[in-house]
Simulated assay, not measured.
Amino acid sequence: AVKGTVLPSTLEDVTLEAIYEDGEKASGESCIPNSRKRISKVMLKPSDAKPLNDALEAVENADLIILGPGSLYTSLIPNLLVKDLTEAITKSKAKKIYIVNVMTQPGETDGYTASDHVKAVIEHSSPNVMEYVIINTGQIPDYLLSRYLSEGSTYVECDNDVIEEMGYTVVADSIVNPTDVAHHSPVKLAQTIMKLI
């Protein structure tokens, strides 16, 4: 339910590539999770893609920059691989928030804790792309957890202390909407963000 202007990070013809921990590679957003191997690194080809000027301007004028939630390696991080865009985010005076996913994503973040998500973001961009990390602490019903488990997805462990040791402020709150899926509640998440700003 986003309202406003949606801007791409770049208009260049780029391909997302991944290197897995075993050294194998894969290309293409939809192919990367298919191997179900642990991802070591993702990159854009070409690596020097230029950002959209309007996107840079939007970042420069922002009061608040929110990263996530979304597929870590195939949706969120690729935007931060556009180097000038990441540099603009780090220089911005806006409050910077990263929202950790509620559940792991098969083929992308298997076994990841909240701090693993944070580490992946900053390793692909800069430690200064976030100040606050929002993590869900709300309960998810067992029937829903077991369904996700059968699909290879688990609840993201909330290891606040590790993230705080990294220098970020953790905002742990019940922001899940466990109906037939375990997703963030737009209303609860908005309320948590509004408290921060």
Rank of each mutant, 00 (worst) to 15 (best):
A58H: 10
R36W: 06
D159M: 07
P106D: 15
T169C: 03
I175E: 01
L64F: 10
G23L: 03
L52G: 01
G138R: 07
L44A: 12
I89E: 02
K50S: 11
R38N: 14
S92A: 03
K45V: 08
S30N: 11
G138A: 09
Y143G: 05
S153D: 08
K195W: 02
M166R: 12
A94T: 13
Y73L: 02
N128L: 14
T74Q: 00
S92T: 03
K37R: 15
V162M: 00
E24N: 12
K37Q: 01
I122F: 07
P106C: 03
L189I: 13
K50R: 05
D180A: 11
P178G: 05
A58K: 10
E60Q: 11
V14K: 04
E57Y: 12
A1H: 15
D173M: 08
S92E: 00
P127T: 12
V118W: 03
L72G: 02
E87K: 15
A172N: 04
L7P: 08
D159F: 08
K83L: 09
A55Y: 08
D142Q: 13
P8T: 12
V102H: 04
L189H: 04
E123F: 01
I32R: 00
M103F: 07
A26M: 14
A182F: 08
V14W: 03
Q191T: 11
D110M: 12
A18I: 09
E60M: 03
P51S: 05
Y148I: 02
Q191I: 09
S30P: 00
K37D: 02
D173F: 01
G23D: 02
M166W: 11
K93I: 07
K119S: 06
S92M: 04
L189K: 05
K188I: 04
D13W: 03
K3A: 07
A172L: 06
I175C: 02
G107T: 03
P186K: 12
N34L: 15
A88K: 15
L7E: 13
G23Q: 03
G23F: 06
R36I: 02
P178E: 05
I19C: 14
I66D: 01
R38D: 08
E17V: 14
I89N: 14
E12P: 07
P33C: 09
P51M: 05
A182W: 12
N61I: 00
V59E: 05
V170E: 07
K83T: 15
S40G: 12
N177H: 14
H183Y: 10
N34E: 15
P106H: 09
V59G: 06
Y148N: 09
E21F: 06
V176C: 10
V42Q: 01
E12L: 02
L85D: 07
V181D: 11
T109N: 03
S125D: 02
N177I: 01
K25Y: 06
T90V: 12
G23K: 04
D159L: 05
L76F: 02
K95I: 09
